[in-house]
């Protein structure tokens, strides 16, 4: 992934984030290249979600700056940013009784005027998004009636309908069983490979993150521990620093990516 120009993705320079007096992230420098699947990892409370929210401009930095394709994130008008970058927060709210297709339609908001009628392009984007997550047969079903994995795919369809080159997801696999976790992560990787969407997600499962990501960003309580390829980031020394965890790292017998075995 070294052939991608530096300005093409999300860049973070000297970023500090926090709540009131407590700084969660201090002076972070980071580069999230376009066209990659990146996972942000780290122990609870290290600021993973806070960082993701800052990357989507849901939270203002205390210091430092973030650029998207070389342009200051703060300078984007809200709608222009929503056409470039989509975020799926951790616990979005489904209106009671809403059907999958109606939920996905709301993802078209950044492309539509308030009084503009529904266009063919909107319909195509929604149909494609629903097909991409494999929910075609369930498009008319209420979201409440779906399984956990299907529900998460419906939310992903909403942000796909937003048709953005950048897609940020906050713990998209939390609360899902292993089969559904793999289903979501392979879907995200497929979207990246087929459409070139840049995917950045906060994940908890280290082994799955290593398997399905091009790059990992490992945060610890004292800031950035490592960033780069899974092989470079997921080392015994880095895990000890980030999690205080004594572990062996072995090659995954199936994928060959690093696999953590806690001692």
């Amino acid at each position: 992934m070294n052939d991608i120009p530096q300005g093409a993705g999300l860049r973070v320079e000297g970023l500090s984030l926090g709540y009131d007096a407590r700084r969660v992230i201090e002076g972070l420098d980071l580069s999230l290249p376009a066209g990659c699947v990146t996972a942000i990892l780290g122990p609870n409370g290290c600021g993973k979600s806070t960082l993701l929210h800052a990357l989507a401009r849901l939270r203002p930095p205390l210091a430092g700056r973030i650029t998207l394709e070389g342009r200051a994130l703060a300078s984007f008008p809200p709608r222009a940013l929503a056409q470039k970058l989509a975020i799926l927060p951790q616990a979005p709210l489904a209106p009671p009784g809403i059907r999958v297709a109606d939920l996905v339609r709301r993802g078209r908001a950044p492309w539509r005027g308030l009084l503009q009628p529904w266009s063919a392009a909107d319909a195509t984007a929604c149909d494609a998004a629903i097909a991409a997550v494999g929910l075609g047969p369930q498009a008319g079903d209420p979201v409440d009636a779906l399984s956990g994995g299907q529900r998460q795919r419906a939310w992903i369809a909403l942000v796909l309908a937003q048709s953005t080159p950048f897609l940020l997801l906050d713990e998209p696999t939390t609360w899902l069983d292993l089969a559904h976790q793999i289903e979501i992560l392979s879907l995200l990787r497929r979207l990246n490979r087929e459409r070139g969407i840049t995917v950045v997600s906060v994940l908890h499962d280290l082994n799955l993150a290593a398997r399905y990501s091009d790059r990992l960003v490992l945060l610890g309580r004292e800031g950035l521990i490592a960033e780069g390829s899974p092989e470079a980031v997921m080392t015994e020394a880095n895990l000890a620093r980030a999690f205080g965890l004594a572990a062996r790292v072995l090659p995954d017998p199936v994928s060959g990516t690093p696999m953590v075995c806690p001692l």
């Binding site: 989507a56 849901l58 940013l81 056409q83 975020i87 709210l93 709301r106 937003q162």
Partner: peptide, 10 residues
């Protein structure tokens, strides 16, 4: 849909 997602949608 929640404040965060609403903001993400512009």
């Amino acid at each position: 849909l929640g404040r965060d997602l609403a903001r993400g949608l512009g």
